[in-house]
Write a protein that binds this DNA or RNA. Sequence first.
RNA 1: GCGGGCAUAGUGUAGUCUGGUAUCACAUAGGCUUGCCAAGCCUAUAACCCGGGUUCAAAUCCCGGUGCCCGCACCA
Length: 501
Amino acid sequence: MKNDELFALLRRRGVLWPSAEIYGGTQGLYDYGPLGFSLKRRLEEAWAAWFVGLSHDYHLIEPAEILPEAVVRASGHLENFTDPEVTCDSCHSAFRAETILEKVRPEGVDGLAPEQIAEIVSANHLKCPTCGSLTLSVPRPFNLMFGVDWGVTGKERAYLRPETAQGSYLSFSRMWDVGRRALPLGIAVIGKAYRNEIAPRQVLFRMRAFTQAELQVFFDPAGFAVPFDRVREDSLPVLRVERRERGEETPEMIRADDLVRSGGLPEFYVYHLVHTVRFFRDVLHYPADRIRLYEKSDKERAFYNRIQFDVEVRLDSLGGYKELGAVHYRGDYDLTRHSQGSGKDLSVHPTGREPLLPHVLEMTFGVDRNIWGLADVHLGKEGERTVWKLPSYLAPVAVGVFPLIGKEHGAYALALTDELAGWGIAAQYDDGSSIGKRYARMDEAGAPFCVTVDGETLADGPAKDSVTLRQRDSRAQERVPRSELGNRILSGLRPPRPSRA
RNA sequence: GCGGGCAUAGUGUAGUCUGGUAUCACAUAGGCUUGCCAAGCCUAUAACCCGGGUUCAAAUCCCGGUGCCCGCACCA
């Protein structure tokens, strides 16, 4: 489905819509409706069940969304998110100063004042890349962070967090103290991050407020033991830098142990990469042939990232592979910076070991982007009908409950709806229009089951108190006693956890 | 930010050039009928992105704004 068509469908069904729509909408902000909110909750729960479930020592926390200026200064966001931007006075195109100066000053522009950059531009007669004029302006700072006035005087500054990860780094020493004082230690955060994007685009793909799910694993750089034997035979769809440089776009399947043995990647990294791919493939049910692990080169990744693979999924609505998650090996960059910034020694003393500064492995997941991805991949037309084939534990509605004839079976079906809701099942009663339309509505909302109360349910006989249970994907129906219904539906509603036995 | 395109009920659209009661379908709500996969009939609700201008009269022409789409740039 095309981008527009998919968004129209999601809007019509109340999955999501632009924020402040009655004022014409607000660029880069979206509201989730009933179906979208519920799907998002379940997606977050599935993520947590999987990634936090990887180890007894991985935990969820909820840090604050506002960061004091000292934090973003230490993290590098004040400096790096405030790229000097040069505009062309002729055609008004905008560029990062670093891009303009790339050829004459490969070491970058860090530490240069705007006037110094302007001097270099004029001394080298640098032209506008778009129109070729010699009319590049003096750079002005452009910051992707939202600043907020802080305190009574409003003179102090704070910032909305541009990524959730910072809260995990800030909480690390507290988590060390309240925990087992052992490495590895994983800290997971699910929450909003905010970026004042220049050009928000493609609905949920570049938003100004978005939800991230991130797991930061702190580990001893001298050794991070993982049960690698359990993943060594998995094959991963990787597109490595050398292959990309040959012009290849498609990934090749490489076994996990080969990625370690001849691929030069550490076991702990590949182990988590395998589990990340399993999550996308086995939990979210993205088709295996749509998933690609895209390795970022030295130039493409942030300087502190030692290894970076983006998890990409091919989406028809956006015409190609899109980044839906990533696995970063960040070294000790974050704790070093915050040790310096705070003046507090963040190194730890594991029992029987010398003090050390842990390294960080980061797994990031774009929650909103994956809601779009799940719609792109699983929501589609099958002949006349539109079906959203969500994994059952993600479906916002688990079961639709219908009376075959409203007047005769309505009361029974309503009572049954309440009973199922009491089991914690998202059950939705519908007696509108015809039975066929009710099935169609539920297919579109992604409900894995529909239950219909009919004459046999009420009549004395062998089928008394049984109903028909209809499966979304196969459309097959079977007769099920009311007493078994709760368990039948409930069994598919728990998201999978990784096996770690 | 730049260039191009677009904006009409919940959704998709006709009408815009050539100003004069805004078209159709689906969806939604109610009724009759039917009774296990979007059936049929009747009824109802429902729209010209916002602001200004020209005109007796603006969805239509003019100016300004906002939003969306595509490409470029940006996305440590």
